[in-house]
Design a protein around this nucleic acid. Sequence first.
DNA 1: TGGGAATATATGGGCGTCAATGGGTATGTG
DNA 2: CACATACCCATTGACGCCCATATATTCCCA
Lengths: 153, 153
Amino acid sequence: MDLFVSKYINKIDKKGRVSLPSSFRNILPKGNRNEIILYKSIKTPSIEGCGVGRLKEIAKRINNLDFFSEDYDDFSTSIFSEIITTNIDKEGRFLIPEELKLYASIKTEAAFFGQGHYFQIWEPKKGLKNTEDSRRRLLKEKKSLRMMLTQQK
Amino acid sequence: MDLFVSKYINKIDKKGRVSLPSSFRNILPKGNRNEIILYKSIKTPSIEGCGVGRLKEIAKRINNLDFFSEDYDDFSTSIFSEIITTNIDKEGRFLIPEELKLYASIKTEAAFFGQGHYFQIWEPKKGLKNTEDSRRRLLKEKKSLRMMLTQQK
DNA sequence: TGGGAATATATGGGCGTCAATGGGTATGTG
DNA sequence: CACATACCCATTGACGCCCATATATTCCCA
């Protein structure tokens, strides 16, 4: 399995450390398991994270843009300067930077949600609510879709 | 990690010295960690910096422009003739030349913004505003930023 | 197959090291 | 000699590394 899946709720200790769930750690590239990158989610008040390999992919894509275009600067600024790398200690813990904790309203506990190629970190209550909401949206759409398909004039 | 990422705000002391963020120092080539190059950003009131190796990359980009175009001369002049090399002391600090400080309105604090293969130095408030502006521009085209971050190979 | 031992995980805390910062002094160059 | 800059040393706080414990999980063997 090489995807971030499932959800976990871990405690943040006095020093601000929190364990990255073991199953997430195992997905990080074997050579580079002591570093992850974090950034503010675009659409939600949560933190997104992934291994550094993914960042290199992104860097490559940005570098392929026209160096003199405005987009180049915008992407470069929005992505590189907003990304934070953080080290994972031997026990599998890392520090969530203060700024990101604020952005996600995280205080004493962090909820980790697998999202396939990346993961999200939420304040637990908000995270669970988000799961419900998105499931509800999904069902509603599905239902209306089915109605549209089966409804007779 | 071999990219300049994240942002840092450091103080400039009485002597005009400022610490290059540790994570930036680590990206400089191992043999040559006591020297960086600085130049005025073309598009923004900020200073750009990088290791010496990066200079070749810039040269290549400029060479891709039409040699007889006005742009070529403009970029070539703006960048090459304005490049300044600076030494880093044993504590990881360097002096920002007066001319560049003026150009970027930097006085007592310098904000360092990772930009992948190079970095920018801003007057903190201006820098933060620039980040917001560029993110706002990108969010208008939400799709493209999201693609940049989540798209798979 | 049941039970105990080895292992892994999440969590807590002590302590040394390093990064950022401040300042004194030597060196040098006009 | 005055100014700028490099080198050296000191301080503070944050962080990484190490060790410790409790609980959960896996493994192994009688």
